[in-house]
Design a protein around this nucleic acid. Structure first.
Lengths: 206, 206
DNA sequence: TAATGTGAAAACCTTCACAGCT
DNA sequence: AGCTGTGAAGGTTTTCACATTA
């Protein structure tokens, strides 16, 4: 019933609820039960109710959850009721795709600067930004209040770049490099690696 | 000790071991202990030993694991000792990035065909392929022995495309669309959504 | 000595089932 | 009548700790 220590698995599921609720709202649904939400997300209603109960009592017995209300609450719990500023490190093919990905900014994640370690890339234009040298990282992070670093450099450079970000007080890392970076406990890292996803998939396809 | 029913969490970690072992091998390491592997991956040695014990006894007491041997065994367990053929659905910006991503084929995942539902895209060239119409899906999947579908279409079309793939006997889906698709139990789906990753990250950054 | 493999214990997470509210 | 919120039960996953083996 209170929010003392929330299991990490629960936090990982909240964005799923946010997305489903947004879709329900856009579709004109005002109220939803844990049952309906569960069939939408292929989860048990009990799990959804239990997850939500870590943060408060959002539903009405006999009725269900008000979609807009629950959505607003969950967005606030996750800290999505404000804009998050990110920088991109690495402007190769992958970096280009990331900076042009239209899915971030509607959700409040704004990429506001791009860096590259390669002097040949520095000064070039990408997605409306001029690529900066790594030596500008400290100053830019501070000036632009950047709190998230998106890492799209080759595997061999990822650990160094991530350490650089952390030294500059960037505590959230979205890592696209195919490595398992070592980070201190107060840093939050999320890895995106489609190859790992495929490699665990094939176990079941064999 | 035997491989009757392996927990899914364990299967999800095996690719991590494969990647770390590949890097160790490339760095010239012949033998590794669960301790060393653990510190590389930020996991406990006990977890690594327990995970491996579901599949066999790969180590030597007092010594550790032979890197090449364990790597070969794990790759076989995951079904990575053969080539997997995939098709891409959706050749927009994201589709382009996926088809040009150089990380798949060194790991044995080959994209062999590209499709799009938009008649304007059909017939155009992308990554060395001619974009095919969705009406060719059945035939192409059979002819080219495609077992994995990579979905990079807009959210609104993802569910339909995935159903289409499943009807054509594609049992592995790598989904980049920001939706939670409904799939039958014998289908293996993996979702790639950086926005969800960011949205759970911010909970800890607030 | 050094590190594996593994039962048993502990921690963690999910599901049940029902009291209680609308 | 219908659905939430939640203790308790049940299941799963991780960690411990040690016998065993090279």
């Amino acid at each position: 019933m209170d929010s003392f220590e929330v299991p990490e698995v629960v936090v990982l599921r909240l964005p799923l609820y946010v997305r489903a609720l947004s879709q329900l709202r856009d579709g004109g649904t005002d109220v939803v039960s844990s049952q309906q939400l569960g069939s939408l997300l292929q989860m048990t209603p009990a799990q959804i109710r239990k997850d939500l109960s870590y943060f408060g009592r959002f539903g009405k017995q006999g009725r269900g959850y008000n979609v807009r209300f629950l959505l607003r609450e969950l967005r606030e719990i996750l800290g999505l009721d404000r804009e998050w500023r990110a920088c991109l490190i690495g402007v190769g093919r992958l970096g280009h795709a990331i900076i042009n990905y239209p899915g971030f900014s509607p959700e409040g994640f704004k990429i506001v600067a791009a860096f590259d370690g390669d002097p040949k890339q520095v000064g070039t234009q990408i997605g409306g930004f001029t690529v900066r040298p790594m030596s500008d990282l400290a100053e830019t992070v501070k000036e632009m209040k950047i709190s998230i670093g998106i890492v799209a450099v080759p595997a061999s450079e990822a650990q160094g770049v991530i350490e650089n970000l952390i030294e500059n007080n960037v505590k959230g890392i979205l890592n696209y490099a195919p490595v398992a970076p070592q980070v201190p406990m107060n840093t939050v890292i999320r890895n995106i690696d489609p190859v790992l996803s495929l490699q665990s998939m094939t176990f079941y396809l064999r």
